Computed example of a mutant assay.
Amino acid sequence: MSRTLRARIFLSVLLTLPAVGLGSGTAGAAEPDPSPSGGAGVMASPGQYALDSRLERTLGDHGAGSYLDSATGELVVAVTDAAAAETVRASGARAELVGRSTAQLQAVMDVLEARAKIPGTSWGIDPAANQVAVEADESVSTPSMARLRAVAASLGEAVRLRRVPGTFTKEVAGGDAVHGGGFRCSAAFNVSRGAELFFLTAGHCTESAVSWSAVAGGPEIGTREGSSFPTDDYGLVRYTGTPEAPGTVNLHDGGAQDITSAADAIVGQALRKSGSTTRVTSGTVTAVDVTVNYSDGPVYGMVRTTACSSGGDSGGAHFSGSTALGIHSGSSGCSGTNGSAIHQPVREVLGVYGVEVY
């Protein structure tokens, strides 16, 4: 294999499995999203990532999530009492008093899990609205939609429900193609553990094959080290031989973005997605702790964004500047510039496998 081809492959490998729908049903028009976190995202700073993580641990049950103000770029932390608000202000962030804690919003999602676990649905926490934002795609039938509406209504203003176009589908991708088990896929980020090199990708890719190559039927470049899907959606492939594997993401314009750190995404922040089908698209983080009910099982703890994506993008890189954020899992498609891309938070995966970006 030539040095140029290896460099392209390892920049940021985007996996491409066939699209798998969640079922069929009556299409419904999308409703506007009234979330205060809507609009163009703002860039998060390293200090904001660190402060967000620290306050989440400090506030515990007195917190209700955080987001970036699209007008000022400030980190806004939702809290349920005055003492917690003072803690937030003393840290340098802006406090906002709300009526529902993260624990209460998670309890709402537990009800949805028990009573409305319908393929083609998704829900997650929007801290800017202090609500659980529920989406139903076009595959959700009229009877199922009626059931979902009834459950949402029973939960009152804690839930916001809307129809979205398309169908929630796993979309394998990340940068340049790799192949395994008859599927074309990709890695999101190259990672290391000591002297060993690996790439991360979607778990619904690594579930399909042990051996991976740069071209269909070509020589092996890596073997599956770990895989988790459903419930989670991540996989780890160990490079074999002596690969050239730079710690970058393919920008599909001849350039690459160096990746030097990893963080959890913050609602309201801007990010980019690199995928082999839609290449590089931009969007805003709109919800965290998201559940997506795929046809072959749910995934939990995901992040929802407005980045555009389509079949072939799963396993791709979600990133902001030099910070790795997530591994592309799927979406309900893209309407204009408004997508619904879902990613697996990458920090969780780094911890599970004991690897790091470089």
Rank of each mutant, 00 (worst) to 15 (best):
L105C: 04
F229M: 04
A317H: 09
G99I: 00
A152M: 04
A83G: 02
S144V: 01
E135T: 10
L155I: 04
A214Q: 12
A7I: 02
H179M: 02
D81S: 10
A263V: 03
L350F: 00
V98F: 01
L15N: 13
A158E: 13
G180I: 02
R160V: 06
L350W: 03
K170H: 11
L105F: 13
T242N: 14
A245N: 13
S332T: 12
L155P: 09
E113R: 15
N338F: 00
A44R: 09
R8Q: 12
L55C: 06
G354V: 05
Y49K: 08
P143D: 10
S211F: 03
L68P: 08
L236T: 11
A116D: 10
L197H: 13
V178E: 02
S276N: 14
S310W: 03
R279M: 05
L68T: 08
S329P: 05
V288H: 07
G268C: 03
P46M: 05
A7G: 04
G254Y: 08
Q344T: 08
P36Q: 11
L197Q: 15
G218H: 12
A83N: 12
G41S: 10
T323G: 04
I118K: 10
G175P: 07
S309H: 01
R54S: 15
D232M: 02
G25K: 10
A270V: 01
V77M: 06
S322I: 01
S227T: 15
A307I: 00
D126Y: 14
S310H: 12
A95W: 15
C205F: 01
E171M: 04
A114C: 01
G166D: 09
P46S: 10
G218C: 04
P345Y: 07
G25E: 09
G218S: 12
I118L: 04
L51Q: 13
G166N: 12
G275S: 08
G21V: 08
D289S: 15
E225Q: 13
T231S: 15
G333A: 06
E207P: 03
N250S: 11
L200F: 01
G120K: 10
V159K: 11
F168D: 04
G21T: 14
A27Y: 02
V346E: 03
E196Y: 06
S340V: 02
P298G: 06
V303H: 11
D81E: 12
L271Q: 11
T169Q: 11
